[in-house]
Structures are given as C-alpha cells and as structure tokens.
C-alpha cells in the first residue's frame, strides 16, 4: 500500500510540476504571441492597437493560466498550448508580412 501511495505522490508531484512549467514557460509565450496577434487583429491605428493589446496581455495570460490548471488531462494541456503557440505565432507573422508588403 505504501508503495502505491509513494507512486501516487510521485505522479502528483509530476502533475504539479508539469502544470507549473506549462504556465510559467508555455503559457507566458502564448500570452505574448497572443497579444502580438491581437495587436495585428484590432481594427485600430497601429499605435492604439499595440497599446490595447499590451493592456490586455496580462488578462490573456491569466486566462491561459486558469485554463492550464482547469484542463482535465496533461495531454490536452500540452496539445492545446502547442496549438495555441503555433496558431498565434504564425498568424502574427503572416499579418506582419501582409502589413509590411502593403
């Protein structure tokens, strides 16, 4: 029985570490790239949309952190974060290219 509780304790520790790591590293990156994307998407003059996106960036990060700890499985968490990272970075990059090309 004690071997099982040790195993459970180990798994729990890994879960906590994984989520905290995801929040501190991946979540932070997603918040940044998401805000950059938002800056490009907002239909405002550049300076205004950059400021607005900056002001919202911490709200975005908080929402991401809450999602990371709410999502049911670790697998969904990793997948979701990687997807978010890819979509926001690519989206921002594309919009940036479009803007500089125009």
């Amino acid at each position: 029985m004690s071997a099982k509780t040790e195993e459970n304790a180990g798994r729990r520790a890994w879960h906590i570490f994984a989520r905290v790591f995801a929040a501190v590293v991946l979540g932070y990156l997603v918040a940044n790239t998401g805000s950059v994307l938002l800056g490009f998407l907002l239909p405002l003059p550049k300076v205004d949309s950059v400021l607005t996106a900056s002001l919202l960036s911490f709200a975005i990060y908080t929402a991401v952190i809450m999602w990371i700890f709410a999502v049911k499985t670790l697998r969904k968490m990793w997948l979701g974060l990687c997807l978010a990272l890819v979509v926001t970075s690519l989206g921002a990059w594309l919009l940036y290219l479009l803007e500089t090309a125009a």
């Binding site: 949309s49 950059v50 996106a53 900056s54 911490f58």
Partner: peptide, 18 residues
Amino acid sequence: LVFVITLWMPLVGFSSYG
C-alpha cells in the same frame, strides 16, 4: 501590472514595429 508591461510583455510592442 500596467507598470510592468514593457518589462514583462515586451514582445507586444516590439514585434508590431518590426
């Protein structure tokens, strides 16, 4: 948090200006 935007979320402004 607004005070630390440029410190902790630098990418937002920075990348938008290429």
